[in-house]
C-alpha cells in the first residue's frame, strides 16, 4: 500500500438537505458512501456514473475542496485533509485538475499565458525559463499563442490550454472531471490522445471521471462504476466490460454501442 500514489479509504460524504416541513428531521443525502480505491503512479483509474452518482463529489474530495465525513484520502501516504490550509496549497503542485467546460475554466479577461502560469505563481515561482511556452508546445499549441485571450481559441484548443495549466507544475496526479464531455467527437479523440501522450511522457497518474463508458474504457486501466454514491463494480476495464455484473453497467454498455460497428 505504501507504493500507492493515491489511496482513498472508506470515504463517505453526506449532505443535509433542507427540511420538508417545519418539524421533520432534515433528509440526508449520501453523496458518496464508503468508497475506497488505490491508484499507483502512472496508472489511470476511470470513474463512470451518471449525474448525481457522487463521482464529482469524490473528485472534489480528492482535490481537497471538500472534507469527507468519514474515511481518509492519502496522497503519497499523507492525509490531505489533515494538512493545514497553507500546506494543502503547497501540496497542490502535485495534484492538478482539468474541468469539463472549456469555455468556463479560463478567466475571459486574462491572456492564456497568464492563466497557464497561475499554478507557478501560487507556488511562489516565476516563469524564468519559459515553462509556459514549453507547456503550450507540449499540448500541441505554439509558445507564441501565450499572449492571446481565451475567446480566440476553439473549445478543443481551450481544453489544451487547461491541460497545459494543469501540467505546468509537473504534478504526479491529474484529476480530469468530464474533461472531454463538452467536445465534439472529432476533437474529443485528439484530447484523449493528448492525455495519453502526456501520461507516457510525464508519468502522470490520472483519475478520469466521465459518464461515457466508451471514453473511460479507451483511456483507463481500471474502472469504478458508481451509482447513487456507491461503487457497483470495480476491476480492470476488460473484466468489467467483458462480464458486467450489474444491470446498470449493462445499460451503460448498451448506451455506448453503435449498432453494426462495434457490437461486442
Amino acid at each position: 500500500m505504501s507504493d500507492d500514489l493515491l489511496s482513498v479509504q472508506g470515504v463517505t460524504r453526506r449532505y443535509v438537505l433542507p427540511r420538508r416541513t417545519l418539524l421533520s428531521t432534515p433528509p440526508v443525502l449520501a453523496a458518496v458512501e464508503n468508497v475506497g480505491f488505490e491508484l499507483s503512479a502512472g496508472q489511470t483509474l476511470g470513474i463512470v456514473g451518471e449525474s448525481g452518482s457522487g463521482k464529482s463529489t469524490l473528485a472534489r474530495m480528492v482535490m481537497g475542496f471538500e472534507r469527507p465525513d468519514t474515511g481518509k484520502i492519502l496522497f503519497k501516504g499523507r492525509d490531505i485533509h489533515g494538512l493545514s490550509t497553507g500546506d494543502l496549497r503547497r501540496a497542490r503542485r502535485n495534484f492538478q485538475m482539468v474541468f469539463q467546460d472549456p469555455f468556463g475554466s479560463l478567466d475571459p479577461r486574462r491572456r492564456v499565458g497568464w492563466s497557464i502560469a497561475e499554478p507557478l505563481r501560487a507556488m511562489g515561482e516565476t516563469d524564468n525559463d519559459n515553462r509556459v511556452g514549453r507547456a503550450l508546445e507540449q499540448v500541441g499549441l505554439q509558445a507564441s499563442q501565450a499572449g492571446r485571450f481565451p475567446h480566440e481559441f476553439s473549445g478543443g484548443q481551450r481544453q489544451r490550454i487547461a491541460i497545459a495549466r494543469a501540467i505546468i507544475t509537473r504534478p504526479s496526479l491529474l484529476v480530469a472531471d468530464e474533461a472531454v464531455s463538452a467536445l465534439d467527437v472529432s476533437v474529443q479523440a485528439q484530447i484523449l490522445n493528448l492525455l495519453m501522450d502526456l501520461q507516457d511522457d510525464l508519468g502522470l497518474a490520472m483519475l478520469f471521471i466521465s459518464h461515457d463508458l466508451a471514453v473511460v474504457s479507451s483511456i483507463c486501466d481500471t474502472l469504478l462504476v458508481m451509482q447513487a454514491g456507491q461503487v457497483l463494480e470495480a476491476g480492470t476495464v476488460n473484466d468489467v466490460l467483458g462480464a458486467p455484473k450489474h444491470d446498470y453497467t449493462r445499460a451503460l454498455l448498451a448506451a455506448a454501442r453503435v449498432g453494426g460497428v462495434a457490437s461486442p
Partner: peptide
C-alpha cells in the same frame, strides 16, 4: 467520425483522429 469515437471493443492505445 466513426474511427475517432472511442470503441468498447477495439481498444487501441491511440485513437485515430
Amino acid at each position: 467520425l466513426l474511427a475517432a469515437r472511442p470503441s468498447l471493443m477495439h481498444r487501441e492505445r491511440r485513437l485515430p483522429t
